[in-house]
């Protein structure tokens, strides 16, 4: 069920990218899209009766959930952060250059 929600979340992010005029909103839309993607990645590894894949005295490795998607998500999140940081800085530079965040006004020049 949650993976369908993840897909919808991704599409919401894309909807934001398609329709917004404001540059920062675009970055936000991109983030929403990446959060949806990460959620989808996580649900790939989910098992109904699985537990977090950390070995403690009380649990055994047999009923672990699939740890690989979680490792992948870890990297994906940090990459998402990297891109957002650069994107925001570029947005700030655009604002300095054109004085506005509205892409229609910028598009003209």
């Amino acid at each position: 069920m949650i993976n369908l929600a993840a897909i919808v979340l991704m599409l919401l992010g894309l909807y934001a990218l398609l329709t917004t005029k404001h540059i920062i909103k675009m970055v936000v839309g991109l983030n929403v899209f990446e959060v949806g993607l990460n959620l989808f990645v996580i649900t790939i590894g989910f098992n109904k009766d699985g537990i977090a894949p950390i070995l403690t005295g009380s649990n055994s490795i047999k009923d672990f959930v699939d740890p690989l998607p979680q490792a992948i998500v870890l990297t994906a999140i940090v990459i998402g952060f990297g891109i957002t940081a650069v994107a925001l800085m570029v947005a700030r530079k655009i604002h300095e250059q054109y004085g506005t965040y509205d892409i229609n006004e910028i598009g003209g020049k």
């Binding site: 098992n47 959930v65 699939d66 690989l68």
Partner: peptide, 15 residues
């Protein structure tokens, strides 16, 4: 959703 078998994926050896 929820029925992934860890056995048939490479993460089984990781565990």
């Amino acid at each position: 959703f929820g029925e992934t078998k860890v056995e048939n994926s490479v993460s089984d050896t990781y565990i």
